[in-house]
Design a binder for these strands. Structure first.
Lengths: 359, 359
DNA sequence: TTTCAACACGCAAACGTTGTAGTTGATTTC
DNA sequence: GAAATCAACTACAACGTTTGCGTGTTGAAA
């Protein structure tokens, strides 16, 4: 009867409740459920049956407190309505789950303050470690105290994509320079003479590195660098509501120069360039080839489908999670303590905005 | 000197450590930090200064255990590389943070088992409540025991978008029928005679409802329903790797009929239809108008830019979070206990795949 | 001098677990 | 037949907080 009474209650069963109900001690219940040989078969059966009946699950919070670890990863990214970042998250989530970890997501919205806030909010025991891609504002301000403090507190951080040389921790990146070189080389090989690059301001590391690869490749091919073929997009124009300004800027750029190929450091720039170019009479890829970065939906479904650099976000996510969890679980010997930087391979996915390579 | 010794340790400070260091009791420290009037000004100052110096933060896990609430929301969605769902998440995150809540994300990957797993994984005290949009497989199987059990355990659930009449809980949806009616009416008003709909199998509720709106509007306009103008896409074709099959199916459909307008229940179907239509000689919007659902990047950057129904994902997210948190914090009186269903307004964003309405 | 608030603080319990260290009563050992 | 062994438990502490209540020390009123 007591049993029935409890069944109807929607209170979650605890060891204590089970113990009282079965008239044994709490530790007996705990041990029975964990199959300790200190407990008789008979008692074990009884306890297990009861626990099953009431759908007992050990309280995770209590376990976290006791074990001083939460089995939860904090992921802080600048934006979530974003193909690349979500791909990375799905990689993280997938791998983390396999290893019994959960994922808490924090968004910085590219704001330094929100990034700090998020870090603070989670660095109070809620998570075991962080995976983070830095906000643009943080990169601009070059204020990294929050990262340093977090690491000093003993909470490991793994950075991906937008990383920092100044902070020592595990990192996962693509080789932006090399990738950009591959892309530019491809354009050169397929006959392009005047290759432009549409990139970001220098403080965004990926923009800077990709530009560097561009410059390097031109040099390797003995092509004179024309600075005016480098368009650095002002940052505010990234947001969706400034689309027209972006288009305007790109249009002026395209009209001012005689360009036959474009490397764009992200999808949006590539798509915009194509749109503008088409409007002012270019034909793609006949007299304008385009390669973008980040293989997202836009590239795939653009008109024409965009040749693009895939950064394998899912793989990056998996790698970040793996680095972090390994570090969390190998506090054993500080021997294996050196921070690692994993470089994830990229791949150029050829679609219809580039020509095949001239023999 | 002890102080210096501890400063160098990266061990996180606890009340206990502070207490020992200052040679007072734990409770004194706790009370001092919470500004209890039981403690003298002097002691308070001392404790606070010390706590600040060491960057003390109350351990969240301990608090969760004590308060029996985690201030964390569990969000389970079918997919994260998805414009609509991420928009919703960003709405949830934003609002939840404002109210001091964190967000844990779980992905079901449209799989029933993973959905159950995720629910289980978090329903052990990790979170206070769930926000969920159901996996397709769950909708197919019609197995809802995991949802029922969770609610029975006293963990509130808020469903959004893919919801269930069978389960009573708070819900946030768009009025799919009405929205679809608005869209079809618009097509009719701008001169379309043979309007097709590209939709999903019926078990996806949004597909079913949008189809219902389509049928209803035709009837209201005394247009004979032609069943063959309804194309129900087989579900597997949704995945990115089956793009060609999808295209093939849509192509056959378009060729078999004399169609001058299409309502597509998601972006992908709309974009695909446009691509195929263009390939077989249609001109958009001159002799084929298209309206899609879900205002994502694809719609905005499509060629031509797609007229589409915006579901205001961010607002939906905010509403789900609000419903959930309100319920969590108002366990006070069960008076306000009735489950609510919030209907979020939609909006047709006119771009270039529809004609202006005939006067 | 006694009595008594007021003050400033400490104690202990509780949240749900787990693991170590007892505590039983019964059985074996020589 | 007393000591040792053993099986099958129970008690307790600890993880880090918060909080109600108890208590010792004041200074002042009686």
């Amino acid at each position: 009867m007591k049993i029935i009474e409890n069944l109807s209650m929607k209170q979650k069963p605890t060891l204590k409740i089970i113990a009282k109900e079965l008239d044994v001690s709490i530790s007996t219940v705990s041990k029975a459920l964990r199959d300790s040989k200190e407990i008789s078969e008979e008692t074990k059966q009884k306890v297990k049956a009861f626990a099953k009946l009431y759908n007992y699950k050990p309280n995770n919070i209590a376990l976290s407190l006791k074990n001083r670890k939460t089995k939860t990863l904090g992921v802080i990214i600048p934006e979530i309505v974003h193909h690349f970042f979500t791909t990375v998250i799905s990689g993280i989530e997938n791998y983390a789950n396999q290893r019994g970890y959960n994922v808490i997501v924090g968004l910085s919205n590219e704001s330094f303050d929100k990034e700090v806030l998020n870090l603070d909010m989670l660095a109070n025991g809620s998570i075991d470690g962080f995976i983070i891609s830095l906000a643009k504002e943080t990169l601009q301000k070059k204020d990294y105290h929050h990262l340093r403090e977090t690491i000093d507190q003993g909470i490991p951080i793994v950075m991906f994509d937008r990383v920092l040389d100044e902070i020592s921790c595990d990192k996962v990146v693509v080789d932006d320079i090399e990738t950009s070189q591959k892309a530019v080389q491809k354009l050169i090989d397929s006959g392009a003479k005047n290759i432009a690059i549409i990139t970001t301001e220098d403080y965004v590391s990926v923009g800077k590195l990709r530009t560097r690869g561009y410059v390097k490749t031109l040099a390797q091919n003995k092509i004179q660098l024309d600075e005016s073929l480098i368009l650095k997009i002002d940052d505010h124009l990234n947001e969706e509501n400034h689309l027209e300004k972006l288009e305007h800027q790109v249009k002026e750029f395209l009209q001012s120069k005689n360009i036959d190929a474009i490397l764009a450091v992200n999808e949006l720039y590539a798509i915009t360039a194509m749109k503008v170019a088409r409007a002012i009479g270019y034909r793609i890829p006949e007299n304008l080839q385009v390669i973008g970065f980040t293989d997202g939906v836009l590239s795939k479904h653009a008109y024409p489908p965009l040749t693009t650099v895939s950064q394998h976000g899912k793989e990056m996510g998996k790698q970040t999670a793996e680095l972090l969890i390994d570090r969390l679980e190998n506090e054993s010997k500080e021997a294996d303590d050196k921070y690692k930087t994993v470089i994830v391979k990229t791949e150029i996915i050829e679609r219809e905005t580039t020509k095949s390579i001239n023999p």
